[in-house]
Amino acid sequence: MFIAISAVILVAIAIGLLRAFLGPTLYDRVLAANMSGTLTVLMVAVLGFMTGRPEFLDIALVYVLISFVSTIAVLRVCGTGCGASRDPEADSGEG
């Protein structure tokens, strides 16, 4: 059963990745990264139960805190300054 749950989470991560690749704006990518962070936290928690090693939860805790700070960092360091308001086409990444 845990396998099924982690498979679902993996699929969700994959979809999130797809959004991160597609963009089109930076915000979409940040959003996708943020969601992948959340999903990874859940994934690690589920995996901890699956393998019977609940100390994995420490890692999940680190993730929650760290990925929050890095999301904020994106927005505060680069959010309004560089390249955020760019034309969606130019930012699509497939240059």
Binding site: T25, Y27, V30, L31, N34, T38, V41, A45, L57, A60, L61, V64, L65, S67, F68, T71, I72, L75, R76, G79, T80, A84, S85
Partner: peptide, 23 residues
């Protein structure tokens, strides 16, 4: 973890939305 998530999630999304509006 749950406690952190219910704070960080909305904050991050809120900040993101605000940055997008400003941008």
């Amino acid at each position: 973890i749950f406690y952190f998530m219910i704070f960080t999630g909305p904050t991050a999304v809120h900040a993101l939305a605000q940055a997008a509006l400003q941008g």
